[in-house]
Amino acid sequence: MINMLSAGSRICLALPTWAQKIHDDFVLNFVNEDRYMYLVKGLLMTLEITFLAVILGVILGVIAAIIRSTHDKTIKDMRPGFGKVLLKILNIITNVYLTVIRGTPVVVQLMITYYIIFASSTNQVLVAVLAFGFNSGAYVAEIIRSGIMSIDNGQFEAGRSLGFNYIQTMVYIIIPQAFKNVLPALANEFIVLIKETSVSGYVGIMDLTRGGDVIRSRTFSAFMPLLAVAGIYLIIVIFFSKLVSVLERRLRNSER
């Protein structure tokens, strides 16, 4: 401690006062007691939750989208029977899921998941992944569904005419094309999700936002930690946006 103070006063001679202030602020918030580790660990936690939630969200979204579009496309021509009843029930469940998730704030869903549904669980990360995954799934579902609906019906007929059943036609022919069409929208959803996980602190998860907040509460200095948090989010979002545009160009080139 004494060492550090003397080091600070030595630099004081060389720097103007405003720069000295910034320097001191920086040392206080990030260097002292290795406080930068709150941000590093928080960032890793944010990325971990986001990645796992996105995987869950895409799986749920594709399933929900297939149910919704199958229902909309085929229910009129279906013969009465078990299949039709099952499809109707699945469609109702999906609609309830979409309505509830999209009609309530994600932070409320997160708290309900943590304090009510998994009240006995101590695995906060798992809870967050489930909450954000189910939340994201509802938005992904509508994105994928619009992608499926945008594919020309001739593609569907071509698949069926070769002998593929409905599901096979979806999996081999429709979904790959739909996916490509909605990739920008999906990437946007991923980027939105990175930012949405910033409410994880509500259930005591040490994510990036919470990490910055902890530093602030220790040092009573808000400027540096919060700007650092904002800057890190910004850099990550820009990075993934770039990555997606590269991927998009690759996919488009494969057709040329």
Partner: peptide, 25 residues
């Protein structure tokens, strides 16, 4: 007939469409 597996039979009935309907991907 509802009990016929139409997918199996369609494998033996090829179809060519006005708009080709090749799979672009």
């Amino acid at each position: 007939s509802p009990s016929t597996d139409i997918n199996k039979l369609r494998q033996k009935m090829g179809m060519v469409f006005q708009h080709f309907n090749l799979f672009p991907h």
